[in-house]
């Protein structure tokens, strides 16, 4: 594996919330607890898990869009987690994000051309004279005709808007893009277009992706490595091969088992292991291993002891008492 582009160390994000009719009770949402991993230059690392598992929070915290409660995000030898907005500004050029909902991430009052051109001018990546050509090239990159530059977001379809959002992220000439559920809101046939586009752009510009998604089939298709998260912690992390062919954590196994297959014959005979119950509230996460309340193989120590982040070899990490031994 090549060198690490980003190193995330013990990242933690807690949101204080007020409860009760008058906000009299204070509580803390444990959105992200003690997460450490590296993102290698040029790879696609996916984070999967169910809602509330902290995968989006991880993306936001890495980009310092949500200030982490504690922990480090090391980029080019510096801890950018402590940077203020002003020091972040030049770094934001390198680290970009594409959001889930293409309907709300574009300013409705700006044309496509203005939206794509704005970061170019702001970061002084081109002169005003060069701008139209630059915009045309970026729109071409994402498969849009140059005439789209004159249009407003409300005149575009969802897939077209997502292309614009990608063009905008590319405008800064970034090295790293967080794709935060970037294809989840799109229709199946459009999803495939955007996935192919992301793969093409990665090859063309040598991009590194942090791909946040809940659709395991898509993740399996696009990723080099996969991290499985549950309630703010990593359950498992490994190459796509390791995680999909040899899942170790019982949660990963259950997750895989819950994914339906587009094959009616196989579905009819398939033995599924269906988790019972719901994900516990991140306001009051279970002690010990956070999965123990739903885990089919939970043992006594799972209730009290937090499992260690354990390397099972070749970079296949897992946090589970049952498989650590």
């Amino acid at each position: 594996m090549s060198t690490a582009l980003l190193r995330i160390e013990n990242l933690r994000k807690h949101f204080p919330v007020r409860l009760g009719a008058f906000g009299e009770k204070q509580a803390v949402v444990h959105a992200l607890d003690d997460v450490s991993f590296e993102i290698a230059e040029g790879e696609t690392l996916s984070l999967v898990g169910e809602s509330g598992c902290g995968k989006s929070t991880t993306g936001f915290a890495i980009l310092n869009l949500h200030k982490p409660t504690s922990g480090r995000v090391v980029y080019k030898g510096e801890d950018i987690a402590v940077f203020d907005e002003k020091r972040m500004r030049p770094i934001r050029r390198d680290l970009q994000i594409v959001f889930q909902d293409p309907y709300s991430t574009l300013n409705p009052r700006m044309t496509v051309g203005e939206a794509v051109g704005e970061p170019i001018l702001f970061h002084k990546l081109a002169t005003r004279a060069e701008l139209p050509g630059r915009i045309e090239r970026l729109l071409g990159d994402v498969g849009l005709n140059a005439r789209f530059a004159q249009r407003y977001p409300h005149e575009l379809s969802g897939g077209q808007r997502q292309r614009v959002a990608i063009a905008r992220a590319l405008a800064c000439e970034p090295r790293f893009i967080v794709c935060d559920e970037a294809i989840s809101a799109l229709d199946v046939s459009i999803q495939a277009q955007i996935i192919n586009l992301l793969v093409d752009l990665q090859a063309k510009y040598g991009l590194t992706y942090l791909f946040i998604a809940h659709d395991l089939a898509v993740v399996r298709h696009i990723s080099d490595r996969v991290g499985v998260m549950y309630l703010g912690r990593f359950a498992e992390l490994g190459t796509r091969q390791q995680v999909f062919s040899n899942p170790l954590h019982p949660y990963t196994k259950a997750l895989m088992s819950a994914v339906p297959e587009a094959d009616p014959v196989a579905e009819r005979t398939r033995q599924r292991q269906i988790l019972t119950g719901d994900v516990p509230s991140p306001l009051d996460p279970p002690s010990g291993c956070r999965f123990h309340t739903r885990c089919p193989i939970a043992m006594e120590q799972c209730r009290s002891v937090v499992p260690e982040w354990h390397d099972r070899g070749a970079g296949h990490f897992v946090a589970c008492h049952a498989v650590a031994g």
Binding site: M88, R89, P90, T105
Partner: peptide
Amino acid sequence: NRPYVTAARALGLSTPIIISRYVIPN
């Protein structure tokens, strides 16, 4: 808290630009 304001922050745009081009016109 609109996503497009977060998106603008993610692009590294400055606060006055965000207020004048994103918050006020909308």
